[in-house]
Write a protein that binds this DNA or RNA. Structure first.
Length: 711
DNA sequence: ACCTTTGGTTTTTTT
DNA sequence: AACCAAAGGT
């Protein structure tokens, strides 16, 4: 095995004894190299069977990359290795032990969109006001509870609202159970509970996975940590790799503290720091180090390089966002002339909305570009429609799928009919499909409705029969036509309909490809394909041949590197984002995000900002980002083509006057018809003034002030 | 069933 | 501004 390609710290990590290891891997320090070499070391030197190794990552992309790198390093096929995401591995365990986990064999996975619909449905079924209990919040609540491994009965209610939230959570869980579906958080939670409560299984898997490796550990949340601890047991060796300075997913539950906790919970854990950077110039690293040193509570790390200092960091002060975009485009044109191809350059930004102006400028100069992110293939409406048919074929109980396709394409089953079915399902505790069948048997509907419903039932029944003997891609194809989805979208005019048709056709290809790459043989093909769609809807890869500038958010840039990086929109309110401005913890996360951005650059780094920017339809002046000031001035070369525009001192955030006329927010008021309520917002002033009031009885209304009286 | 209007938002993204 | 979802109208 070749170790001489590794530096001393990397070697130390790779050759570490079989115990707990915490590898703090700075940006560009060869983290993935260490991880893969460690795995190979375990197999070839420590003689651990690949069968006894579990490697966990966060994204499918990372899992695939690790697998392919290992395959090229290792002589034995890596097939026997368990490499995957937390969710993917959990899924595998649940499929293998569906009975023990109390799931139907054909259980399906709900994505967040499905989950939202399901939560909303539940709220309406409970006769709750969706304005008072917005589905989004309930969904957030449920996921947060699950991330803490709390089932409905384990949640401590804080207040009346909390009580209701728990009720929603409870009812949602029951609805999922009935429908035979589980959401993403459930994959982890159910696996955790299964291993926790089932001694035999836990012992089996603890015995099996002697070595555990976890990548991007700073992104783990509470349940993932608990999951890992359970599998590790007392005996097994755990190596985690992470970088507390690159933790940028706190907002979705990632616990940076897990890294610190690790040393306590896993006794004897040794810390190995990878600080030598092979990516960036000295200047860029100095800037990154200076920036991140402003954060508190770090584990501490200082990146260094043997390479040259390189160019200074260019900071450009644009007049407005268009000016900023043109500066970037001009630089790209120059760099393209001299030393860099387009694919070597990336434009990074804080929020997606920023891409538009930049795209327009790129287009004007005919520079090819590619925007990463956006709607993923399997998230598109037409694809989800098609998949919903497959889901119903595989599992009649799948209520979310039922709701989605009962009238898509339209077949004369309206809201009224659907409500009847829902009510009946609620009253009897049946699934929607079962409720429908029962109602049909009882001759409940008018002839016309009955025909429409019978047509639907027959369609699904015949689809199920007809697709049974077919190969997966033929099944998909059959469903697309038999369901009428193809015709439905063919009628949709304009380019949109055409794209949708193409997407649907592509689904047949995707299914075909899926079969050829080998369906896991312990699952029926449709179920396997659906799980793949929900869990591994990998974004389409950019064609490697295409030479274009890369546009993406800072978040999606994590893990990537580019010779030239433009970091656009370095202004207060935008970066750091105004929603993070009032929380020091959030500011630190923004700073880490900036750190991630800066350390993406190999040779040249440009940071740009606009003095005047149009945001949410309003023009606003912003100060340059604090992060720019945190980079030592001697590392920066500032360009400003325009004289500094004189401007008023910026006003911090959106200021709403306490009182306007006789009403203020929070005031108790009375209305002749609607009764008593509380003022929650004010708009306009004088005679035009409108007041938004939340009434005790009738909900929220916007009213002309003169119809209200103070209480 | 399809259209228009209104209102309410507006970070970041994976699974 | 621009987008989306829901409500209301035809």
């Amino acid at each position: 095995m070749i170790l001489n390609s590794l530096n001393p710290a990397q070697q130390e990590a790779v050759r570490a004894p079989l115990g707990h290891q915490l590898v703090l891997a700075g940006a560009g320090s060869g983290k993935t190299r260490v991880l893969t070499h460690r795995l190979v070391w375990l197999v070839e030197v420590e003689k651990v069977s690949p069968f006894n190794i579990l490697a966990v990552t966060f994204t499918n992309k990372a899992a695939h990359e690790m697998r392919s790198r290992i395959e090229s390093l290792l002589q034995i096929p890596a097939k026997t290795l368990w490499i995957g995401t937390f969710h993917g591995l959990s899924h595998r365990l649940l499929r293998a032990h569906w009975q023990e986990a109390g799931l139907p064999q054909s259980f399906q996975i709900l994505d967040s969109d499905d989950q939202y619909r399901m939560v909303r449905r539940v709220i309406l079924t409970l006769n709750l006001d969706e304005d008072r209990f917005p589905p989004k919040e309930a969904q957030w609540f449920i996921n947060a509870q699950k991330e803490e491994a709390r089932e409905p009965h384990q949640v401590e209610p804080r207040d009346m609202n909390g009580q209701t939230m728990i009720k929603i959570y409870q009812a949602y869980q029951e609805a999922c159970q009935r429908a035979g579906v589980i959401d993403f958080a459930d994959l982890l939670l159910k696996t955790y509970k299964l291993l926790q409560s089932n001694d035999t299984l836990r012992a089996h898997y603890q015995d099996r996975f002697r070595c555990l490796l976890v990548d991007e550990f700073q992104d783990t949340n509470a349940i993932q940590y608990a999951w890992l601890k359970l599998l590790a047991g007392e005996e097994n060796a755990v190596m985690i790799v992470g970088d507390d300075d690159q933790s940028i997913y706190g907002w979705r539950g990632a616990r940076i503290e897990n890294i610190q906790r690790f040393s306590k919970d896993f006794p004897g854990a040794k810390i190995i720091r990878l600080e030598q950077n092979y990516r960036s110039t000295g200047t860029i690293l100095k800037a990154a180090n200076a920036l991140i040193s402003q954060n508190s509570g770090r584990l501490g790390k200082n990146l260094w390089t043997e390479g040259k200092d390189g160019d200074l960091i260019t900071v450009y002060a644009g007049f407005n966002e268009t000016d900023e975009a043109f500066f970037i485009v001009n630089r790209i044109r120059e760099l393209r002339q001299s030393e860099h191809s387009l694919r070597e350059m990336a434009i990074l930004y804080r929020s997606n909305a920023q891409s538009r102006v930049i795209e327009e400028a790129l287009m004007q100069f005919g520079i090819p570009y590619r925007v990463y992110g956006g709607l993923r293939y399997f998230d598109r409406a037409e694809i989800k429609d098609a998949l919903a048919y497959l889901r119903i074929i595989a599992n009649r109980s799948d209520d979310p799928a039922f709701e989605r396709i009962i009238n898509t394409p339209t077949r004369g089953i309206g809201d009224r009919t659907l409500t009847v079915i829902r009510d009946h399902a609620k009253a009897t505790g049946l699934t929607l499909w079962a409720a429908l069948e029962q109602l049909l048997q009882q001759k409940f509907f008018t002839a016309r409705t009955e025909n429409a419903l019978l047509a639907f039932v027959n369609l699904i029944t015949s689809m199920t029969e007809k697709t049974l003997p077919l190969e997966l891609h033929k099944q998909v194809e059959y469903v697309l036509f038999a369901s009428g989805l193809m015709d439905h979208y063919r009628k949709e005019k304009g380019e949109k309909g055409l794209t949708r048709l193409e997407n649907l056709e592509e689904l047949v290809n995707a299914a075909h490809q899926f079969t050829q790459e080998g369906v896991p043989d312990d699952m029926p093909p449709i179920a396997a394909f659906l799980a793949y769609a929900a869990l591994e809807s990998s974004e389409e890869q950019a064609e490697a041949y295409e030479d274009c500038v890369q546009l993406m958010t800072l978040h999606s840039a994590k893990g990537l590197e580019f010779p030239v990086v433009f970091l656009a929109g370095c202004e207060e309110e935008l970066f750091p984002h105004y929603l993070s401005m009032h929380d020091p913890k959030a500011i630190e996360e923004e700073r880490r995000l900036c750190y991630v951005g800066v350390t993406r650059a190999m040779k040249k780094l440009y940071m740009t900002y606009a003095e005047l920017r149009r945001m949410h339809g309003k023009e606003a002046y912003h100060r340059p980002s604090r992060f720019l000031h945190e980079i030592p001035a001697e590392l920066i070369h500032e360009i400003r083509f325009r004289a500094k525009v004189s401007r008023p001192q910026p006003i911090a955030s959106t200021f709403k006057p306490e009182a306007q006329g006789k009403f203020r927010i929070g005031q108790e008021v009375h209305h002749r018809i609607f009764g008593d309520g509380t003022v929650i917002d004010l708009e306009g002033d004088g005679d035009d003034m409108k007041v938004k009031v939340r009434f005790a009885k009738v909900g929220t209304k916007m009213l002309i002030a003169s119809y209200l009286s103070a209480k």
